[in-house]
Structures are given as structure tokens and as C-alpha cells.
Design a protein around this nucleic acid. Structure first.
Length: 435
DNA sequence: TCTGGGGTCCTAGGACCC
DNA sequence: TCTGGGGTCCTAGGACCC
């Protein structure tokens, strides 16, 4: 079955066995809020999604009150008031910066670190199995001491097993560390783990497998390869191999550049006018163009999409349009212009729009570009410098310090964030004060 | 009233070409 | 009467992740 692997696993030390640790921050957003505000240390804390819609993070005290993950905020307001729960809107400036601090710390713990998400990273392990648990504990201790963020650590022979070990560390240990190797990688443990906990097995696959009598990880490991491939494609077969301890998911030292960049938001209130949609489109264009430049790319096409609120009993409309650019660009005004052109073709009067967004596609590395016949070198350089200046000011003084007038100033459509904490670590005028 | 945002990969099927 | 067959490109849809 040579078709399973995909490039194989990276072996930095030749023949040495490669294995993995997965470090995952506990209740990351809630933990970030607590780090910067000692008054919260003994209080339940929840963090809300965009527009203050749902609960997306809860500290252990809040979980103990029975506040469910994903619960609509309005449904738990009573519990929140009764137990004096601290509520926060998502503060991505803060979480992004705290994430960077955690990842910087992890970089001192292992020869290779792959940042997997805002609150998770895989580490390459070069410790003997017998010392693994001590090593995992030392990582946990260091991150807590350096950043204030509690983490769980799982270790295993493959990424999928490290993920599973992390799940065990969180759910079944008090110290937040688990090594799934040697004696602990065994039938009696694997039989007790539900397939739905496996990385790569979502809701639908779990239901499908159950209908074929496969309920736990041990059964999945022993499932028939051709059955798995038929029902779950090579992706599912890869997961099963990983559970067997055969690495199929490779090491990604440097994250590959994004093939598509999306910026979209629900509005804080229904939007009806083209004028306000135009502002939003410009704003999302500026955000997406900034992401594009950060990965040193340029886009060849801009898509705009708008939609009404499908949960409302009122006239519904959703549409999208794509504009192909004359030349690849990461120049914000070009992207805004394309987005506006696209928006004008799909806008219909008389609807209450709930959401809009833009998507950049046909993304190429910017060094492959050069001025065309239609643009002289001098102008090309000027545009490049303007964007560099814009990015460096916004990086130094915080996003949104300098922006385009077409993005709007008051922005009545922008999302609701009624419970926003200060951007303690990224804005000079919002630093925490010690008294 | 409220019900998020941003990504990736794989497969099937149609169009089109030789 | 025969109506193959391989290849590529594109899109839509479905699955997953955080």
C-alpha cells in the first residue's frame, strides 16, 4: 500500500525514530484574558464569538457552571449574571500576540516546532521513551512560567497519536501530560477511546463507522484497509495508518503560502445601502491584501460575496461575483477597486444584508512578478513602497492606525464587540497598569 | 434577540482534445 | 453497424480541521 504515504516523514537525524509531541493551550482565549487581569483568577470567564453571538471558550470554573461550548450568549445570560461570570468579546489582537509568545517558548524546547493553529503546535521529539513524560512536564512548566498560559502535552509515534495522547492528557489526567508509547500504547487503553476523538474523524465519518460496528480506536486500527479507503478515501486510510503508528502526515517546517485568502464578517446590524456595503468591501479588501503581502504573494482574482440572514423570515438573497485582475497584485487600492466593481454587479436593493466578504484567489509568489508594458518601473516601485510604509506603521502602532477613506470612518456595520478587553500587549495606550 | 470565520484536500463528473 | 479510450482542466460538493 505505497499509496498511503505522502512524501514520508522528515527524518532530521537519519535513521533515528521520529516522534511527536502535541502541545495545546488549555481554554486558550479564556486563559489569555486571565493572564492579563488578576482580578479574574478566581472568577469564571467566558469568551464570545464575533458579534458576541456564542460562547467559544470557557475557563474550568465556567465549564463547571454547565455553560456549554457554542451556547448562544443570550441563552446563558441568566447563569452568567447569577454567578458573576466575566464575559469577553473575542480580542484577536491579544490572542494572536499571546500565541506568538507561547510558540516562541516552544521553539526553545525542541529542535523543530510546527505551529498548527493559534493554540497548538507539534514538536519533534528527540528524547528516549523512558524520559518522555519528564520532558513533557518540563515543556508544560516552562510555558506556564514564561507566558502564564496552561498547556496540555501529548506524545506519540505519529501526529495522530500525539493528538490522541493530548486528548487523554486533558480528559483523564490531573497533570495534563500523557505519553502514548511503550506499555501505554495498548489494546486495553485504545478500546476505551471513542473514534469521534480521533483527529480526522468528524461527525459524519464517526456515524458511518458506527453503523458498521466500529466504535472505538482499537476497532478502527483493526479495520479492513479497502473498506476504509472505499468509505473515507485515502485521507481516512492515512488516519488509520497513523493510528497504527506508521507516519503518513509529514513535517511542515515552513507553512506553505495560502492558496486562497478570505476576509468576511457578519455585520453588527442588517445593512441595506450600497454605500455601507461598499465600505465593508473596502475594509475586508484591505485586511485580505495585508495578509497577502505578509506572505509575499499577489492575487490574480477577487471574489465578493454578500448574503442576507438565513435565520430570518424575510426576503433572502445571496450572490457572489469574481473579477479577474489585469495583472497579479497585492496593492490594496487595486483590490478595493476590483471588489467594488464586483459588488456593483451583484448588489440588489431592498434586502437586509447580514454578511459580506471577499476572497483572493489565483495567488502567486510576488517575486515572480515584474512591471508590465503598461506600468513603468518607477510607478511599480512607488506603489510597493507605499504599501510597505502602510504595513510598517500599522505593525508598529496597531492595525487600523492608517487606513483607506473608502473603508469608512464610523462603520455602523462593524461587528458588535460589547465586552472587549484592552489590547494589553499590542497597543501602547492599552498596556496593563500595575498599582 | 441570537445562531463565527478561515482554511485544506479529495472525488466525481462534464467539457474538450486527439 | 460501429459509437473506443486516454488525457487534462475545471467545478461542485463533501469531508475534515481549528
Amino acid at each position: 500500500m505505497h499509496a498511503v504515504g505522502r512524501g514520508g516523514t522528515y527524518h532530521p537525524y537519519g535513521g533515528m525514530t521520529v516522534w511527536y509531541a502535541l502541545v495545546d493551550c488549555n481554554n486558550f482565549y479564556a486563559s489569555c484574558e486571565k493572564v492579563c487581569n488578576p482580578a479574574l483568577w478566581n472568577r469564571p470567564v467566558v469568551v464570545l464569538s464575533n458579534n458576541d453571538g456564542n460562547v467559544i471558550a470557557r475557563c474550568p470554573l465556567a465549564k463547571a457552571l454547565g455553560i456549554a461550548m457554542g451556547a448562544p450568549f443570550h441563552q446563558c445570560k441568566e447563569t452568567i449574571a447569577r454567578h458573576h461570570v466575566a464575559v469577553f468579546s473575542s480580542n484577536y489582537a491579544l490572542y494572536g500576540d499571546m500565541s506568538r509568545r507561547v510558540m516562541d517558548t516552544l521553539a526553545t524546547c525542541a529542535p523543530y516546532v510546527e505551529v498548527y493553529s493559534i493554540d497548538e503546535a507539534f514538536l519533534l521529539c528527540d528524547v528516549p521513551v523512558a524520559e518522555a513524560e519528564d520532558y513533557a512536564r518540563s515543556i508544560k512548566q516552562k510555558v506556564l512560567q514564561w507566558t502564564g498560559i496552561p498547556v496540555s502535552v501529548g506524545m506519540g509515534a505519529t501526529k495522530t497519536l500525539a493528538k490522541l495522547a493530548n486528548h487523554i492528557a486533558k480528559k483523564r489526567t490531573h497533570h495534563g501530560v500523557f505519553v502514548m508509547a511503550g506499555d501505554s500504547y495498548c489494546k486495553s487503553l485504545l478500546e476505551t477511546i471513542d473514534i469521534a476523538e480521533v483527529w480526522g474523524i468528524g461527525f459524519r465519518y464517526a456515524r458511518m463507522l458506527q453503523s458498521h460496528g466500529i466504535y472505538n480506536v482499537w476497532q478502527l486500527i483493526n479495520a479492513d484497509d479497502s473498506f476504509i479507503k472505499k468509505k473515507m478515501t485515502v485521507v481516512g486510510l492515512r488516519t488509520v495508518y497513523e493510528l497504527r503508528g506508521i507516519p503518513c502526515i509529514g513535517w511542515e517546517d515552513i507553512p506553505p503560502p495560502k492558496k486562497a485568502i478570505v476576509s468576511s464578517r457578519s455585520f453588527g446590524k442588517p445593512v441595506e445601502s450600497l454605500h455601507e456595503l461598499t465600505q465593508a468591501a473596502a475594509h475586508y479588501s484591505a485586511i485580505a491584501a495585508g495578509k497577502l503581502r505578509r506572505q509575499h504573494s499577489a492575487a490574480g482574482a477577487v471574489t465578493v460575496f454578500v448574503s442576507t440572514n438565513p435565520f430570518k423570515d424575510e426576503p433572502q438573497y445571496s450572490s457572489s461575483a469574481t473579477v479577474v485582475l489585469d495583472m497579479h497584485t497585492a496593492y490594496t487600492p487595486d483590490i478595493i477597486a476590483a471588489a467594488h466593481a464586483a459588488l456593483h454587479t451583484i448588489y440588489r436593493e431592498g434586502y437586509r444584508y447580514k454578511k459580506a466578504g471577499i476572497m483572493l484567489t489565483d495567488i502567486v509568489p510576488s517575486q515572480e512578478l515584474s512591471p508590465t508594458l503598461f506600468m513603468h518601473m518607477q510607478r511599480y516601485e512607488k506603489r510597493h513602497q507605499l504599501m510597505q510604509t502602510l504595513d510598517s506603521i500599522n505593525s508598529k502602532y496597531g492595525r487600523g492606525t492608517v487606513y483607506f477613506a473608502s473603508e469608512g470612518i464610523a462603520r455602523p456595520w462593524s461587528m458588535r464587540r460589547c465586552y472587549l478587553s484592552p489590547r494589553y500587549t499590542t497597543h501602547w495606550d492599552e498596556l496593563p497598569v500595575a498599582r
